[in-house]
Nucleic acid binder design. Structure first.
Length: 270
DNA sequence: ATGACTAATCGAATTAGA
């Protein structure tokens, strides 16, 4: 099983993350918003639990990491071209799977004194760069998993009241157009593909009793290309961690692939 | 209602998140 979780500070959340890993059958965990320099990441704690880690962090903000029970090879940190000053992309491979942990920019506020804001411009440019890279990955003919906090509310089933999000960077027409761009390349939102009519959320704001009211949004996604889709068996969300003490505002989303070990090919003989 | 929470920072308020 592979999962993605915006932990909102690995320093604060390390016990919660390790508790969840111990109670799940998670092989690979994609983390976002670690908010930690690489040298401060609790690598030893993960090692004691049987997980190797790859880290792409920075001070104070952003930061992505991947923990894996199975041998993992680092492919790249950042999207590999200009504009990568923020730590938001980390790519590894496990077996023949290519896997990325993604923390896509929020982009709000969209407007700044009557003009499109620098934050929203940065979000759109980042998405364009992600699309170019995702296209190249897809052409390798290998299973690809792009998991993370995409800061995109795809549709009405992904929040309580879509009208509230009109014009917001998480559901802005420009953001959605680029989100669909990933679809056109051949990537599918695995949760929605396997749960076509279910309303479910992955984030609940700390403010206003959002968790108690189940007033959430689904912005954490696991995208899969055709080769990965051929092997997927489930995609779901575990709400449990969001209800625990001192929780992240996000909860893990996950997907399962056939085989006893992650990414193992089917044992069906010819 | 520009606030409500939470986290990080050379903090005693500000920035950012979504």
């Amino acid at each position: 099983m592979i999962a993605s979780w915006n932990v909102n500070s690995i320093k604060v959340r390390v016990d919660a993350v390790l508790d969840w890993l111990a109670s799940s059958d998670c092989d690979i965990l994609l983390m976002q918003e670690t908010k930690s320099l690489d040298e401060n990441f609790p690598t030893e704690r993960f090692a004691e639990a049987g997980y190797a880690v790859e880290i792409h962090g920075q001070k104070t903000y952003n930061g992505v990491a991947i923990a894996s029970k199975q041998p993992m090879v680092l492919r790249q940190k950042g999207l590999g071209d200009a504009g990568d000053e923020q730590a938001r992309y980390l790519e590894i491979e496990v077996g023949d799977f290519i896997i990325a942990s993604i923390y896509l920019p929020n982009g709000n506020p969209v407007m700044d004194e009557g003009n499109i804001s620098a934050k929203f411009t940065y979000k759109l440019a980042w998405m364009e760069r992600l699309i170019r890279h995702a296209d190249a990955l897809n052409q390798l003919g290998r299973p690809v998993i792009l998991g993370g906090d995409f800061n995109i509310i795809p549709d009405a089933l992904d929040c309580h009241d879509l009208a509230r999000w009109h014009g917001d960077a998480l559901h802005h027409p420009h953001s959605l157009k680029l989100w669909r761009g990933l679809t056109y390349l051949g990537y599918a939102d695995s949760f929605r593909a396997l749960n076509p009519s279910r309303m479910a959320f992955s984030f609940w704001d700390y403010q206003g009793g959002a968790w108690q009211k189940d007033d959430g949004i689904r912005i954490d996604h696991i995208l899969i290309n055709a080769e990965a889709a051929d092997r997927i068996t489930a995609s779901d969300i575990d709400k449990t961690p969001r209800g625990l003490e001192r929780a992240s505002d996000h909860t893990p989303v996950f997907a399962r692939f056939e085989g006893a070990r992650f990414g193992a090919k089917s044992q069906i003989s010819a």
